[in-house]
């Protein structure tokens, strides 16, 4: 095979040769299509694609329960982040409190209305859909029950929406805006700001624990 990645852990994955083993034992790399034979890997190890180096699977026991608890936490904090005041501005005796919803509605003005909808989806709706879908799909697995109907679809949706969930980018944008305003007025940071930052950190932790391969396997095993 051309160009084996230096990151690959030899012995964990073997390239498929001659006779094909059963389909269930094969993994195709989602990015370069190289076929690998699936094998169980040691705890806390990562298996990389032999050709392009992308992570194919990770092994973290109890990851499922952790993903579920992180998703639940983030879901609740997101609701808090939307309901409480986000930032407050004081200047010259005038006072203006802003929530996340107000930030979305900033574009609520004629030609920019579609942008208001898009921003609402990027920072609130899509993150909530992802969390909700993940909770729906994984909750029965953690309690060792049969998966709910549509659990496969829900998990697939959560993964497909990943690039469109932009809560973390929003927080960086807020930081830039704060520095721009800091010179002209006093800004007070509200509880929603901290809740939103919490959602961002927890989402990163949660996404790092997700191993698509193991979750699909677990969904299939539980459905049997």
């Amino acid at each position: 095979m051309i160009g084996a990645s230096p990151r690959c852990q030899s012995g964990v994955f073997k390239h498929v040769s001659a006779a094909l083993p059963p389909l269930d034992d094969l993994v195709a790399c989602p990015q370069c299509d190289t076929l690998h034979r699936a094998a169980s890997i040691p705890t806390n190890a990562r298996a990389h694609c032999k050709r392009c180096g992308i992570v194919l699977m990770t092994s973290q026991p109890a990851a499922m329960a952790r993903i579920l608890s992180l998703a639940l936490t983030a879901f609740i904090m997101m609701i808090a982040a939307v309901s409480f005041p986000f930032l407050t501005l004081d200047a010259g005796g005038l006072h203006n409190a802003t929530s996340v919803i107000d930030a979305v509605l900033a574009f609520n003005d004629g030609y920019a209305l579609p942008l208001a909808v898009a921003v609402a989806f990027f920072i609130v709706v899509i993150p909530l859909i992802r969390l909700g879908a993940l909770i729906y799909a994984l909750d029965p697995l953690v309690r060792e029950q049969k998966p709910r109907s549509g659990a496969h679809k829900a998990f697939g949706l959560a993964e497909r929406l990943r690039p469109w969930s932009m809560a973390e980018i929003f927080i960086v944008g807020v930081t830039v805006a704060l520095i721009k305003v800091a010179g002209m007025a006093a800004v007070t940071i509200g509880p929603a700001f901290w809740a939103f930052s919490g959602v961002v950190v927890i989402t990163v932790l949660k996404d790092q624990l997700i191993c698509r391969y193991s979750i699909w396997e677990a969904l299939d095993r539980a459905a049997r």
Binding site: A106, V119, I123, V174, A177, V181
Partner: peptide, 10 residues
């Protein structure tokens, strides 16, 4: 997002 927050806040 900077524009959204600035226009909502100020």
């Amino acid at each position: 997002f900077v524009v959204a927050i600035l226009s909502a806040l100020v």
